[in-house]
Design a protein around this nucleic acid. Structure first.
Lengths: 206, 206
DNA sequence: CGATAATCTTGACGATGGAAAGAGGCCAAA
DNA sequence: TTTGGCCTCTTTCCATCGTCAAGATTATCG
């Protein structure tokens, strides 16, 4: 019944192991089903071991959320770079990356945007998302090279983020495209993003 | 230490009392801090009493979510009726009612749109929301009296719902307008709704 | 080599959700 | 009115949870 000799009393890299098992567990059981003890069990470690790496369960969740935001940024920029086209295409690309990450990590995504995980480090991750959005919106507005006020730029960033965030959120909750195929759903998402990007671009050209 | 004589062994209307205390508790402690025992405590009843009215804690939460959707519909229609104007104004009105409810009941709103509360009765409440949105979008499209396909109407409904849902969600999580005054925030919300409504109307007129 | 610090285990505490069983009160049939 | 059955609520119990404290084990570095 003892642990095999592959490791002794010390784990070696328990922190990373907890993050890894925690992330899987989160997707399997949902935010409310997440358990620190089960996390420890999967890392093959006693139930109190995590305390030496995370002061509390919320600390572990915050770490997961923080890393999630980094991945989200990466997914957005990767998809935007692939999309070569005008400013509108960039905006759509960011949205595609956003939605792809959310679809691949639905529970983590929910956690990242839930009141429970509102810490400083996590908020910084969210701020980076807005920076990405704001830059793309700026580019879209300037492509019509008329001057727009900072307020308009801010409000268009709100609008752009709200559209893509709202769409994927409603999809994940089953409110949009409940019985659609994956292909059909993507088409619906792209349509929403296109309408969003068109609106942003047009708001710069009047 | 005994219970005062105002009530005896039987409570009278424990189910409603649990719903009431549960709703308050939910907003105070958040979804993850919600506790069935605390709920019973506030209804001045033993911790096992709720079991006779709700099979499990999730059942009580589902009931709260279901009632929340009814209130949400009411808030939307009330605000839309107040807004007399074109189809665009109706669309904006629905959005205002939507955001007003969410702002007044942030945790309940989060619960309603979380995977945890995905039951049949709750889904029916969400379907009613989409019906409201779809009707307003239809009216907006027809106001330009050009024929549009069912697919376009569906996608514009997606878009309209996504915009208002995304905006208020991001506000509640602090991602939009973190340090804004309440007035400024309303203005930002109205700007997002106006952009949404304009896009919907315009999509019918091309 | 030895001491200090870091890491992990064991054991305990209070709180939770849920099940089981009994006590108390309501109500309709006799 | 009495009585039996049924619904409501309480008490008690169990497994599990997060967290804390104390001890065991190992790594690190003087």
């Amino acid at each position: 019944m003892n642990r095999p000799k592959t490791r002794g009393y010390h784990h070696g890299d328990l922190r990373e192991a907890l993050v890894a098992s925690g992330r899987k567990l989160l997707e399997e059981k949902g935010v409310r089903g997440f358990t620190l003890r089960e996390c420890a069990r999967r890392a093959e470690v006693s139930h109190a071991a995590p305390a030496h790496h995370f002061a509390s369960m919320d600390d572990l969740l915050a770490e997961l959320a923080q890393r999630g935001f980094k991945e989200l940024s990466a997914s957005m920029t990767a998809e935007a770079e692939r999309a070569d086209g005008g400013a509108a295409a960039q905006l759509v690309g960011l949205g595609v990356g956003y939605m792809a990450f959310a679809a691949a990590n639905p529970v983590l995504f929910q956690l990242m945007f839930s009141r429970e995980a509102n810490r400083l480090e996590v908020a910084e991750g969210a701020a980076e998302i807005r920076r990405l959005q704001a830059a793309a919106v700026d580019a879209a507005l300037q492509s019509a090279d008329t001057q727009v006020s900072g307020e308009v730029r801010q409000r268009m960033t709100d609008f752009a983020w709200a559209t893509m965030h709202g769409f994927i959120t409603l999809v994940l909750e089953g409110e949009i495209g409940g019985r659609d195929s994956s292909r059909g759903l993507k088409a619906r998402g792209l349509a929403a993003l296109a309408a969003m990007a068109e609106t942003v671009v047009r708001s710069g050209g009047r």
